[in-house]
């Protein structure tokens, strides 16, 4: 894509845009070949169905409400039955409908906090990389400060000090502590893009910094940012689960970590496998599926691996 002259700026922009879509399409073709990627997508689809299905049980009967619906006939934990496919928890709530709701919460937590951290990380990375100098130093030092903090431990401390956090604050905090790594990668990517001819060309025609960053650099770093997003989703889900498990989650939200906390704290850990196993397995599988998708995307984006494949 050698575009050198100033007059071609517009077409350079157009071509980078076009190139982006083109890459997406060719990327998908490569992705389809990847076994991990396919398994990951199928799993994700299953979880999406669960999340969508979570609205159904409470409509059938209010006793299936995951938080407040109790079975009037059952006041202790029972095993699977026709009435309750996965059994009930200690006050007679349906575990299956809790599990479905958990999938919804996992998606909300994972995707929204990953999205936020990617937005912050990408912007900081691009600005730092493009501006350089003092801006770069300050932003990267800030990234260092955040980066040395062990995320789970810091959020635990905040939860312990400031009281139980609501699910959205937890999402926000996870995002706040997970952007620096993204920023670093995007920054180095930006540094190399900055020296590309089409950016020079844009600058010569008098495009503003803002315009260059968002119109010319962003489309090129976006795939990388998306890749990082899949990894951030997994870590966000795991952090929320760990918080909830330790009793620092949002008690008004039925997440899988919260279900594990209930089974743990009420003394059913080793007596109710029907209650203990499903949430734990779901946490692993959903993070696994995001991981697999991420790995597959990684291979799509990393030309070296593709080349090697082509050689065979």
């Amino acid at each position: 894509m050698p575009v050198t002259s100033a007059e071609n700026t517009f077409s350079a922009y157009r071509s980078s845009r076009f190139h982006f879509l083109e890459r997406l399409k060719s990327g998908w073709l490569v992705y389809r070949e990847n076994l991990l990627g396919r398994i990951g997508l199928v799993l994700l689809a299953c979880f999406a169905c669960m999340a969508a299905g979570s609205f159904i049980p409470p409509l059938i009967d209010p006793i299936y409400h995951p938080m407040s619906g109790v079975d009037p006939l059952i006041s202790y934990s029972t095993g699977p039955s026709l009435r309750h496919w996965l059994g009930t928890d200690f006050i007679g709530r349906d575990i299956f409908s809790q599990l479905l709701t958990g999938a919804r919460i996992a998606f909300i937590v994972g995707v929204s906090s990953a999205f936020m951290s990617i937005v912050v990380g990408t912007i900081v990375g691009m600005v730092a990389g493009y501006a350089g100098g003092t801006t770069d130093t300050i932003l990267m030092r800030a990234a260092d400060v955040v980066m040395v903090m062990p995320t789970l431990l810091v959020i635990l401390i905040l939860a312990a000090l400031f009281g139980q956090l609501s699910i959205w604050i937890i999402v926000l905090l996870i995002a706040l502590f997970r952007w620096p790594a993204v920023a670093r990668v995007i920054r180095s990517q930006t540094l190399s893009l900055k020296r590309r001819p089409f950016v020079d060309a844009a600058r010569v025609t008098g495009a503003s910094c803002f315009r260059i960053i968002f119109r010319h650099i962003m489309p090129n770093v976006l795939p990388l940012a998306l890749l990082y997003m899949t990894f951030r989703v997994t870590s966000a889900i795991l952090i929320e689960a760990a918080l909830a498990f330790l009793g620092f989650g949002d008690p008004g939200t039925v997440s899988w970590g919260m279900m594990l906390q209930w089974v743990w704290k009420t003394g059913h850990m080793f007596q109710a496998p029907y209650w203990l196993l499903p949430p734990g397995i779901c946490i692993s599988l959903i993070t696994l599926s995001f991981y697999m998708v991420g790995r597959a995307m990684d291979e799509v984006l990393d030309p070296r691996l593709r080349k090697e494949k082509a050689l065979e």
């Binding site: 938080m67 407040s68 009281g163 139980q164 330790l246 009793g247 620092f248 008690p251 008004g252 009420t266």
Partner: peptide
């Protein structure tokens, strides 16, 4: 109180 301190009281609050 929070669920890690006393899950039953937190649960009673919700009810």
């Amino acid at each position: 109180p929070p669920a890690d301190y006393d899950p039953l009281r937190a649960m009673s609050g919700m009810m």
